[in-house]
Amino acid sequence: MDGQEEKATIEVGHCSQCGRPPVWRVANALLCVDCFHKFEVARTLDFRIAAIGMNYAAAEMDHLAPFGGISPRIQVPDIPRGSTILNNIKVDNSVVGSINTGNVASIDVNISYLKKAGGDEVSAALVELTETIARANDIDDGQKQVLLDQVEFVSEQAVKGAEGRRSGMISAALSALDSTSKATASLSAIWNSVHPILRHFFGMS
């Protein structure tokens, strides 16, 4: 925010979003701990999308250049951690230890954006897919993480405008999800209903 963000130095007033006691000031808005965390998540998501896009562009240039492989890459930051508040996705406490709740929180935020934009069908598809992956008992934790990484990327691209999407990377992510989901009993049925929705949303049908 370059000077527009600072810790609140007074304890008067209320969070501009929820009315709780504020701890940070962003521009002219006071924010409580939870709302400031949501702000940081949203800001980090913007940077993550930009970083992923720049890394993809660098990889494309390296592929075309005869001496490829020298372009620097940007480290994609993790989602800021804090109390995990999910507004759309339901995750049982019994599976929390087997998943990265940061991924799920990021997907949940993107789903909220999609709902506000009128993307109810794709939002419902992403909710159902994420919840099914989280509770799947026939894949290991590592496979769950890979799948959730791919769902997170797909949800990030869904939030972006059509002109800013990376269609090649979206297609690759959907193909990877397709391959694993079809071979996994707990995911195959839901994937058969979700996959066409995602392809149609991204204009691939």
Rank of each mutant, 00 (worst) to 15 (best):
A183N: 15
T184H: 06
Q17S: 12
G53N: 14
N55M: 04
Q4N: 11
D62Y: 06
Y113F: 14
T184D: 04
R135A: 13
S167R: 05
V76D: 11
L187T: 08
S94Y: 09
V26G: 00
G13K: 00
A27T: 04
A134H: 04
D138H: 05
L86I: 02
T130R: 00
E60N: 03
F47M: 12
L86G: 03
A29V: 11
V122M: 07
M1N: 08
S106D: 07
G13E: 00
I74K: 01
T132I: 03
N28A: 00
E11R: 13
Q157V: 02
V127I: 15
G102W: 09
C32V: 00
S112R: 09
I99N: 09
S71L: 11
Q75D: 12
W24M: 14
G142T: 08
L126D: 06
L148M: 01
M169K: 10
S186P: 03
I74W: 02
I10H: 13
N55R: 03
G142S: 12
R25E: 15
G13H: 00
K182G: 14
D62H: 04
K90D: 14
K115D: 06
G142N: 11
V95R: 09
D2A: 13
P72M: 04
R165P: 12
P22T: 08
L177Q: 01
A57N: 05
N100S: 14
I79N: 07
V127N: 07
I190L: 03
G19A: 07
R73T: 12
E40C: 11
P21F: 13
V146A: 13
V95H: 07
L147M: 15
N110W: 02
T180L: 10
H200Y: 03
L31I: 04
V104G: 11
L187W: 06
A29W: 11
P72Q: 06
V151T: 07
D62M: 02
A173C: 13
N110R: 09
N88Q: 10
V151L: 06
M204Q: 14
D108K: 00
I197F: 12
V96N: 06
F202M: 05
